[in-house]
Design a protein around this nucleic acid. Structure first.
Length: 798
DNA sequence: ACCTCCCGCCATGCT
DNA sequence: AGCATGGCGGGAGGT
C-alpha cells in the first residue's frame, strides 16, 4: 500500500540548494547530500547508528563558516578554493581539517552531545526540504532514509516529525512515509491553533497560573483554589483534557495507526504549546507554565514532580524543533526567584485562523456566529474527507484542503519511481561538530547553501535585515478586524473567570470556527484582589476583549521577562510573511517559496551564532534594530489589557500618573505590531484598584554585549502600562523614545507605581513585567522594564 | 547543582 | 510474531 507511493517521488528534499555549489560541505552535509541515492527497501533499517565519521569540522572550519556566512565574498572565495565543497565536501573538508587537528581535537570534536541535539538534527532535517515545496513534485519523506542519512535513530526522527506533523508541515502517508508540506499550511495551522487556544482559554489559564505563582510568592492569601477550578474546567467536561489533535483538512493522518494512537503527547503537546504562544500576549511562555498548563489539563493538582519533569522534558524536545523552525527562540524570564527558561514566539503573527496574511481566506469577520456554533459543526462536517473522528478541522481551512488535496493528487499521479537515495550521508554527514559552534556553523552552512541558491542577496540581506526590518511592519490589518468583532461579545464569557469549560476545551476537536477575529480577552488579574478573579465583571479581573490575543498580555506579575531583542528580526519578517510570499522574503532576498526558509534561516542563523561571542555580536547587530518592548505591570495591579477596542478604549483614560493617553498607547502598540491598527488598547485601572503606578522600569533589552548597533537597538521605549479596568482599560504607555537605558535599573520607571493595587503594594520584587515583545516588534521597540530588570536573554537556542 | 535533553527501553498497536 | 510508533524517564553532558 503505502509502498507504492513511496516510490513515487523523486526528490523530496533537495531544495533549491543544489543550485549553487556553494553550499556544499558543511556539516550540513547531510543535508546537502540530500540528493539521494536510492534506497532499496523501505523497511526500516534499524539503527543507523554508527556514527561514523569524525567530524569534519574543526573549530576553524566553523569559524570560517560563520565568517563566510557573514561575508559573501569570503564565502565565495572559499568556495573557489574548495573549502566548501559540495556535498562530498564534508569529507574533504574534514580531511583538511583533520590534518591540523587530528588527534585530540579531532576526537573532541566528536560527538558532543550537542552535536546530537534534536535541534541540530531538526535543522538538518529541515534543510532537506524546501519551505514551500512544489506540490507537483514528490515530497515524500521516508523516515528510514532520513534516519539513515542523518545518522540517527529513527526514534529521533519521530520526535521531529511528530512536531512537524502537529503544524501540518508534514502528514503521514503510510508506514514510514510522510509527505512534506513545508510551510504552505503553516499560517493556517497557526491560525487554527490560535483559535483553539483562545477557545481553550489558554491565555486565561496562563494568567491564572501566574497569578497563583505570584500569590504564592508573596504569600498572599492563597486563593489558589479558585484557579484550579478554572483550569480544570478547561479540561473539558469529561474531565479530561482534551487531548485532541487539531487537524487540518486534507492533512489528516491517514495512517490508521496514527489515528489510533492516542495522540496524547508530542503531537498534541506541540500544538498546545504553540497555542500558548499564540494566545499569550507577550508571546513568551515559560516552560514551567507550559508544563503546568499541559499537565493541568489533566490534573493540575496532581502535579507530581515526576510528571512535571517528564512534561518539561518533552517540552524541550518540542521547543527544539520549534526553534529550528524559527518559530520560537529561547529566552529567560527573570523573576524574583531566578531565571526561568522560557521561549518567545518568533514566528509569524497570526490572526485567528484566518490567515490574515493570506488574502486568500478572507473570512468575514462577521463570522462570529459561525464561531459560536463552532466547534461542532465545523470540523467534522465540513470536511468529511477522511474524517477522523477525533480530529477536528477548522472550517477556515477548507481552502487549504483543496489545495492540499490537489497537491496530493498530483503527487499520487506522479510517476513513481523511487528515488530516494540519499545516502551518503552516513559517514559524512553527520560529522560531529564541536558543539555549539559547530552547530551554528552547520546551520549557517545550511543556510548558506540555501542562499547560495539564491544569488547572494541573501547574505547581505540578512545583515541588513536588522536594519530594515522594522518599522514598516506594524500595521497589519488583519488584526483589526478582529477587534471590532470582539467587542460584542465575548462569546465567551469574559471571563476568564468563568473560564469554565469552554466548550471547546472539552471537546476534543478543537476546531473552532472562528471568525478571524475571535475575541480574545486579556485579563489581568490583580493579585491582590485577584484572589478571586472571578467576577468578571468585577473588575479585577477584567476581561477585555481583545483582538486577538495579541493584545493580551497576560504576563503577570510573576515574571519578568526580558527578552532579548536579538532575534526579533526574524520575527518581523515572519510576521510579514503571509502564507504566500512572505514579504519578508523579498527583503531577504529569498526566493520565494523555497527560500523563504532561507530568510528565516538567516535569522535563525543569526541566532545560532550566538554561541560564540562573535555570534552574539552578530546577533546583536542583527537585532539592533529590533526592539523589545516590555511592559510591566505591577503585580498587583495587573489589569488585563484589553486590547480590543473596547469602547472605553478609545476614550483615553488618563492613566493615572503618567500614562499617556491611550491613544498613545495604541499608537505605540500598533507600531510595535502588538496590536493591529484598528485596535486600541486602553488600560485603566481596575475599578477597584486604582492603578497605582506599577513599577515599570524601562527595560532595556539587554544585550549582553551590546553591540554596536545596539545602541540603536534600544530604540525607543515606550512604556506601556496596561491596566485594565473593568471597562476601559487604560493603558499607559509612554512612548517615549528615549533610548532605552540599557540598564534597566536605572530606569526605574516612572510608572512604577502605576498599577499597584492595593493588595500588592508594591512589591518590589513582585513586579511583573510584561513584555511586549516585540512580537512584532517592529520597529519601534519599546521597552519597559519592570522594576526589576527583566532581562530576557536570549539564549541560544540550541 | 541545576538545566538540558540524549538515549534507548519497552509498551502499544498495526500488519 | 514482527515491525512501526512513540511514551517515558534515567542519567549524563553542559554550564
Amino acid at each position: 500500500m503505502e509502498n507504492e507511493k513511496e516510490n513515487l517521488f523523486f526528490e523530496p528534499h533537495k531544495r533549491g540548494l543544489m543550485k549553487t555549489p556553494l553550499k556544499e560541505s558543511t556539516a550540513a552535509n547531510t543535508v546537502l547530500t540530500e540528493i539521494q541515492p536510492d534506497f532499496g527497501p523501505l523497511t526500516t533499517p534499524t539503527k543507523p547508528k554508527e556514527i561514523s565519521q569524525g567530524e569534519p569540522w574543526t573549530p576553524t572550519a566553523n569559524l570560517k563558516m560563520l565568517i563566510s556566512a557573514v561575508s559573501p565574498e569570503i564565502r565565495n572565495r572559499d568556495q573557489k578554493r574548495g573549502l566548501f565543497d559540495n556535498r562530498n565536501g564534508l569529507p574533504e573538508a574534514k580531511d583538511c581539517l583533520h590534518e591540523h587537528l587530528s588527534g585530540d581535537e579531532y576526537e573532541k570534536s566528536q560527538p558532543s552531545r550537542k552535536e546530537k541535539s534534536l535541534g541540530l538534527l531538526c535543522h538538518k532535517f529541515l534543510a532537506r526540504y524546501p519551505n514551500y515545496p512544489n506540490p507537483a513534485l514528490n515530497n515524500d519523506i521516508c523516515l528510514d532514509e532520513v534516519a539513515e542519512e542523518l545518522n540517527v535513530e529513527r526514534r529521533r526522527i519521530y520526535d521531529i516529525v511528530n512536531v512537524l506533523e502537529s503544524l501540518h508541515m508534514v502528514s503521514r502517508l503510510a508506514k514510514n512515509r510522510y509527505t512534506w508540506h513545508g510551510r504552505h499550511n503553516l499560517n493556517q495551522t497557526l491560525g487554527t491553533l490560535k483559535s483553539v487556544g483562545e477557545e481553550n482559554k489558554y491565555a486565561e489559564q496562563i494568567m491564572m497560573i501566574k497569578k497563583k505563582e505570584y500569590e504564592q510568592e508573596f504569600d498572599f492569601s492563597k486563593s489558589y483554589t479558585i484557579e484550579d477550578p478554572i483550569i480544570k474546567s478547561n479540561t473539558g467536561q469529561n474531565g479530561h483534557p482534551d487531548m485532541c489533535f487539531v487537524e487540518l483538512p486534507g492533512v489528516e493522518f491517514r495512517a490508521a495507526s496514527v489515528n489510533s494512537r492516542k495522540d496524547k503527547s508530542l503531537r498534541v503537546m506541540s500544538q498546545k504549546f504553540v497555542m500558548l504562544f499564540l494566545v499569550s500576549t507577550p508571546q513568551i511562555v515559560s516552560l514551567e507554565i507550559a508544563a503546568k498548563i499541559l499537565i493541568g489539563e489533566d490534573h493540575v493538582e496532581d502535579l507530581d514532580k515526576s510528571k512535571f519533569k517528564t512534561k518539561i522534558r518533552r517540552l524541550y524536545d518540542i521547543a527544539n524543533v520549534l526553534s529550528s523552525l524559527d518559530l520560537i527562540k529561547k529566552v529567560h524570564v527573570t523573576e524574583e526567584r531566578g531565571r526561568k527558561p522560557a521561549f518567545k514566539w518568533t514566528g509569524p503573527e497570526i490572526s485567528p485562523n484566518s490567515s490574515g496574511l493570506s488574502p486568500v481566506l478572507p473570512f468575514a469577520p462577521s463570522d462570529l456566529e459561525v464561531r459560536r456554533s463552532s466547534k461542532e459543526n465545523c470540523a467534522k462536517n465540513l470536511f468529511s474527507t477522511r474524517g477522523k473522528p477525533n480530529f477536528t478541522r477548522h472550517p477556515s481551512l477548507i481552502k487549504l484542503v483543496k489545495s492540499i488535496e490537489s497537491d496530493r493528487r498530483k503527487i499520487n499521479s506522479a510517476p513513481s519511481s523511487p528515488v530516494k537515495t540519499n545516502k551518503a550521508e552516513g559517514s559524512q554527514n553527520s560529522a560531529p561538530f564541536p558543539s555549539k559552534m559547530a552547530q551554528l556553523a552547520a546551520i549557517c552552512k545550511m543556510q548558506l547553501e540555501e542562499q547560495s541558491s539564491e544569488p547572494r542577496k541573501k547574505v547581505k540581506v540578512q545583515l541588513a535585515r536588522s536594519v530594515h526590518c522594522k518599522p514598516v511592519a506594524p500595521l497589519d490589518t488583519p488584526a483589526n478586524a478582529e477587534l471590532e468583532m470582539t467587542a460584542p461579545s465575548l462569546i465567551q464569557p469574559l471571563g476568564v473567570l468563568p473560564l469554565i469549560p469552554s466548550p471547546l476545551s472539552s471537546a476534543v476537536p478543537v476546531i473552532l470556527p472562528q471568525a478571524p477575529s475571535g475575541p480574545s480577552y486579556a485579563i489581568y488579574l490583580q493579585p491582590t484582589q485577584a484572589q478571586t478573579m472571578t467576577p468578571p465583571q468585577g473588575l479585577s479581573p477584567t476581561v477585555c476583549p481583545t483582538p486577538s490575543s495579541n493584545a493580551t498580555r497576560s504576563k503577570d506579575s510573576t515574571d519578568t521577562t526580558t527578552e532579548n531583542t536579538a532575534n526579533d528580526a526574524p520575527k518581523s519578517s515572519a510576521s510579514a510573511r503571509p502564507g504566500s510570499l512572505p514579504p519578508g522574503l523579498e527583503r531577504q532576498g529569498i526566493k520565494n517559496r523555497d527560500r523563504e526558509a532561507a530568510g528565516e534561516r538567516g535569522s535563525k542563523r543569526a541566532s545560532m551564532l550566538e554561541d560564540s561571542g562573535s555570534r552574539k555580536r552578530f546577533k546583536e547587530d542583527l537585532k539592533g534594530v529590533e526592539n523589545v518592548s516590555t511592559l510591566m505591570v505591577s503585580p498587583t495591579s495587573m489589569a488585563a489589557v484589553p486590547v480590543g477596542n473596547s469602547p472605553a478604549l478609545t476614550s483615553s483614560h488618563p492613566v493615572p500618573v503618567q500614562n499617556p493617553s491611550s491613544a498613545i498607547v495604541n499608537f505605540t502598540l500598533q507600531h510595535l505590531g502588538l496590536i493591529s491598527p484598528g485596535v486600541q488598547v486602553s488600560t485603566s485601572p481596575a475599578p477597584g484598584t486604582i492603578p497605582v503606578s506599577p513599577r515599570i522600569e524601562a527595560v532595556s533589552v539587554i544585550p549582553e554585549n551590546a553591540g554596536t548597533q545596539q545602541g540603536r537597538a534600544t530604540k525607543y521605549d515606550a512604556s506601556v502600562l496596561v491596566q485594565n479596568q473593568t471597562n476601559g482599560q487604560s493603558v499607559a504607555v509612554t512612548g517615549a523614545q528615549q533610548p532605552v537605558p540599557v540598564t534597566p535599573k536605572g530606569s526605574q520607571l516612572v510608572a512604577e507605581s502605576f498599577f499597584r493595587t492595593p493588595g500588592g503594594p508594591t512589591k518590589p520584587t513582585g513586579s511583573s513585567c510584561v513584555d511586549f515583545d516585540g512580537a512584532n516588534n517592529t520597529s519601534v521597540g519599546t521597552l519597559f522594564v519592570p522594576q526589576r530588570k527583566l532581562e530576557v536573554s536570549t539564549e541560544d537556542v540550541h
